[in-house]
Amino acid sequence: MRTGRTLEVGAVTTMAGALVLSLAVGEEQTMGNLARILFVHVPAAWLAYLAFVITLLGSALYLIRKDLRWDRLAASSAEVGVFFTALTIALGMIWGKPTWGVWWTWDARLVLTAILLFVYLGYLALRRSIPDRVSRARRSAWLGMVAVVQIPIVHFSVLWWRTLHQPPTVLRPGEMQMDPPFRAALFASLFAFTVVYAALLRRRIEVAQLDDLAEEAAASAERRVAGAAVTAPGVPETAPPADTGEARHRPGAAPFLAASTLVAGALVTASQSSSLSPWGWVAYAFGATYASMAVYAIWLAARQCSRAGVAG
């Protein structure tokens, strides 16, 4: 618990520091203030990558060790990764409208990122569809290992194909084409977002542990009822547990919620006005980032509290 608290305080502090730096640097030559949006868009994309690589590691370790803790790591990281992928797309749209002139276009990078989101939503859906914990863990581990091939494809799409999206500035061969003040702000943001990821992941793993405990309790209660039925048929000695259905593993509605809120927000703004000032766009992007992170964190904490109640 102490480590978790430290992580969460650290996440808020580093985010505040990154925000100050992101707003303090000067304007970019071409984009002016709009360049600040990249200090949240790029870290969100980095964490989508990192989260799905952690899912790969958790999946592989589960298949080797057959320990459900690695499955919980893989599943939790995938959910947090879906959150960051949705955030990346939303922030990219908020940047794209004033810079390119369009919210969305069928460019290879954009389409592949959308596919990445849907494949990992499929991963979360697969987990919901398998009731047995062990076969759920095994099957989703295979998917978690196969799906990660998308990461290099998404990342290098801008080099392999001619796209509207610019090529990478940071994870690329050769010298970084970015002036030092922007680098400082970008790296501070990358660090801060990584701490946020760690804090969210930790929370999500705790929720997964409570889910597993509740599921185990429900399963053993079911066995007791079944055993009782064999020895004394027709005599319902113990009431069946009320929350058997409730104890089912429930991966996130939060990423869906966050993604749809952001997309809805983008669409509303699109219909209202496409002529915000550059600072208006920056405020929109940063506001969407902090709001969605807060919603996800609060939602995880709420789920943790309600689960802790169920598991006793």
Binding site: G26, E28, A35, W100, D179
Partner: peptide, 18 residues
């Protein structure tokens, strides 16, 4: 229909040449 393409270079106003 026009879209503006930004490249991967980010320069401060008084910084390096674009």
């Amino acid at each position: 229909h026009m879209m503006v393409k930004h490249d991967e270079q980010y320069r401060t106003e008084d910084g390096g040449t674009y």
